[in-house]
Write a protein that binds this DNA or RNA. Structure first.
Lengths: 183, 183
DNA sequence: TGTCGGTTTAACCGATCGGTTAGTTGTCGG
DNA sequence: CCGACAACTAACCGATCGGTTAAACCGACA
C-alpha cells in the first residue's frame, strides 16, 4: 500500500479514505479488468457468426488483452495459483459467465458439426490459459535465452503469436472432413 | 519461515542452520521439482519412439506431475507470473533444456511429416501451460460452481483430463491425411 | 571425567506492512 | 466573515516477517 500510494503520487491515507482497505482496492482492480474482458469479448463476438469464428475471436481477444495489459494475466495467474483465495464473490460470478460463453460456443459448434466432441471446459481452459500463459511467458524470454534456450532472435508481434496459438488450438478443436478422431 | 518451521515440526533457527536463508530454501524446492520433471520425462520419453507418442507422453507427464504434486504448478505459475524473478540461474538453465526437448520433438515431427509446421515454442507453452493451468484450475472448481458456472457434478479422473487435453492439443498439432492447414 | 564440536532452542531484533488518527487545508453556503 | 464539512497530510501503531544470537544440549573422544 505504501508503494502503491507513492507511485500513484497520493498520500497513503487517501487510498483508505477514497477506496477502502487493501482487499477493496484489489477487488476494484480485478473487477475493472473483468469488465474490460466482458466489453471486449462482447464487441468481438457481435461481429462473428460461426462457432469457429467466435472461438477464434475469443482466443484473440484474450491474448490481445493479456499482451496489451501485462499486469492482468499476472494477477490472473497468481489468483488461479491460489485457488481464487483473494477473489471477491462478484468476480467469481462474472468469471463463471465468461466460462459459460465458451461452453455455449463449443456446444453450438458441436451441434452444427463444426467441432469435434471436445470437453468445453478443457477447451476454455486451454484458450484462456494459453493466452494468459503465453503473455506471461514473454517476460521470461530474456532470462531463458540467457540460460541457453534456443529462442528466435526477435519477439513476434502479438498478432503473429495469436495466430500461432489459435492455429494449434482451433485445428485441434475444429472438425476435419474425414479422418475421425476418437483417439 | 515461521510457518514452514512450525509445520515441519522443527525450530525455525534450524532452517537457517541447515538450509540457509529463504532464497536458498526456495531454490532447493524448485530445483527438486525440476529434477523430478527431468527424471519423469526422461523415463517416459525412453519408451516412446514417434514424435506423436513422445509429445503425448510429455503432455501426460506434465499433467500427471502437476496433479499429483499440486504445490508445484502453483509455484510455477507464480514464478512465471513474476517473470522468474525468484528463480535461481540453475533452475532457468534446466528449464531451458526442458524447452529444448519439446523443440526437438516438434522439429522431428515436422521432418517426419507427422506434424504440421507449428511454432515449437508456442506448442511447448501450450503443452506445459495447459497442464499447469489445468491442475491449478481444479482448485477453483468449487468456488466457480458455487458462483453459477455450469460444471459437471464430479471431477474427472486425472487420466481422463489428460486424455482430453492431449486430444485437443495433439489433434491440433498432428498432421491430417488430407485437408491441409495453412489457416 | 572434562571438554570440544556440532546441533538445537527460546528469545530477541530491526525492518516492513496494513491500517489509523489527530490535526491541517481548502472551499462553499449563509 | 465564519462555521461546517469534505479532502488531505504527517506521524504514528501494532502485528508480522526474515533473520540472528547467546546459551543450552549432546555425543565422541582424550
Amino acid at each position: 500500500m505504501d508503494e502503491i500510494a507513492r507511485r500513484a503520487g497520493v498520500n497513503k491515507a487517501m487510498l483508505y479514505y477514497h477506496v477502502g482497505d487493501k482487499a477493496a482496492l484489489y477487488a476494484e482492480v480485478v473487477l475493472g479488468f473483468i469488465a474490460l474482458v466482458e466489453a471486449e469479448t462482447g464487441r468481438r463476438m457481435a461481429s462473428e457468426a460461426s462457432p469457429t469464428g467466435r472461438l477464434r475471436a475469443l482466443q484473440e481477444t484474450f491474448l490481445t488483452l493479456a499482451l496489451t495489459h501485462p499486469s492482468y494475466p499476472q494477477i490472473m495467474m497468481r489468483e488461479i495459483a491460489s485457488g481464487g483465495a483473494n477473489l471477491p464473490a462478484a468476480a467469481l460470478q462474472r468469471m463463471a459467465q465468461v466460462l459459460g460463453n465458451t461452453h455455449r460456443i463449443v456446444s453450438d459448434g458441436l451441434a452444427s458439426g463444426e467441432f469435434r466432441p471436445v470437453d468445453p471446459i478443457v477447451a476454455h481452459l486451454l484458450i484462456v490459459g494459453g493466452a494468459v500463459f503465453m503473455a506471461n511467458a514473454l517476460r521470461l524470454r530474456d532470462r531463458l535465452s540467457a540460460a541457453g534456450a534456443e529462442l528466435p532472435a526477435e519477439i513476434p508481434k502479438p498478432a503473429t503469436i495469436a495466430d500461432r496459438v489459435t492455429d494449434i488450438l482451433l485445428f485441434g478443436i475444429a472438425a476435419r472432413p474425414a479422418a475421425g478422431g476418437s483417439l
